[in-house]
């Protein structure tokens, strides 16, 4: 999660997350193709005009999901039930209803992905965690622990690469999937436990749990525009639902 310099990046992360989750919840109960498509399209528009996306960024990110889009659509459309048969061949049975179904589900998936991307591409991880502390009242102990854990992910990645190389040199080939998994998992787990224990001790040694009136280097607040974002995005979606129902 890296931040860019768009308008959306200045919105309070908790507020942004809450708005997007609400839209996603609405998406789940909508069964209309047009509305689902429009809600997805709204996310694309927000991304392009408020989120600092370029067309090429958008295409690059969504490209893999278009593949899944077609797959979901075809699965739903060709094997679905329905009365109005459009086309039938061998075991494929495409009906008006199944096409509708397929498109709705496929656009719903795409919209979920796009709203998620809208959040991650415009939110700084640290600010997000800080906002969880300030707006969602997450305890600092958990929040800082979470951050420390996230730091470990790239370390694990390089560890895994090293392990793969070492196994290659030793000519280690295991057909038994479980044993194969263990041969990677055991050293990674031991290393992970050791590292996280050390980090925890280092954090405690620096007084994490001794702090009484903790101050904060970075604070996040909810401003008018954050509420504005929430209200307007919800309003647009609801209006769309009402008009196109």
């Amino acid at each position: 999660m890296k931040v860019n310099h768009s308008f959306l990046a200045t919105i309070n992360p908790s507020c942004k997350l809450f708005s997007h989750v609400l839209v996603m919840l609405l998406l789940m109960v909508i069964t209309d193709v047009k509305v689902t498509f429009l809600i997805w399209f709204l996310a694309v528009l927000i991304g392009l005009f408020l989120g600092g996306w370029t067309i090429s960024y958008l295409l690059k990110r969504l490209c893999p999901f278009f593949g899944i889009f077609i797959l979901i659509f075809w699965m739903m459309a060709a094997f679905g039930k329905g009365q109005e048969t459009i086309w039938q061949w061998a075991w494929f049975h495409v009906t008006q209803e199944s096409i509708n179904h397929g498109l709705t589900i496929a656009f719903r998936m795409l919209a979920f992905v796009t709203y998620g991307l809208l959040f991650t591409s415009t939110t700084d991880l640290t600010v997000f965690i800080m906002s969880l502390i300030h707006q969602c009242k997450l305890s600092p102990k958990w929040a800082y622990g979470l951050l420390a854990g996230i730091r470990l992910i790239p370390l694990f990645q390089s560890e895994l690469n090293q392990l793969k190389m070492a196994h290659k040199v030793r000519g280690y080939k295991e057909k038994n999937g479980w044993k194969m998994f263990l041969s990677y998992a055991v050293p990674m787990f031991t290393q992970g436990i050791r590292k996280s224990e050390r980090i925890a001790i280092a954090m405690e040694a620096r007084g994490l749990s001794r702090a009484k009136n903790r101050t904060y280097y970075r604070t996040t607040k909810v401003a008018l525009k954050d509420g504005g974002y929430l209200v307007s995005i919800l309003a647009i979606v609801i209006v769309m639902i009402i008009i196109f129902r």
Partner: peptide
């Protein structure tokens, strides 16, 4: 590698200060 909990240099130093309520 295993004594830090933040992602950037300034936040990491600030973590010590926060614990002291500066």
């Amino acid at each position: 590698d295993s004594q830090f909990c933040m992602l950037h240099v300034d936040e990491e130093i600030a973590f010590s200060l926060e614990n002291r309520s500066v």
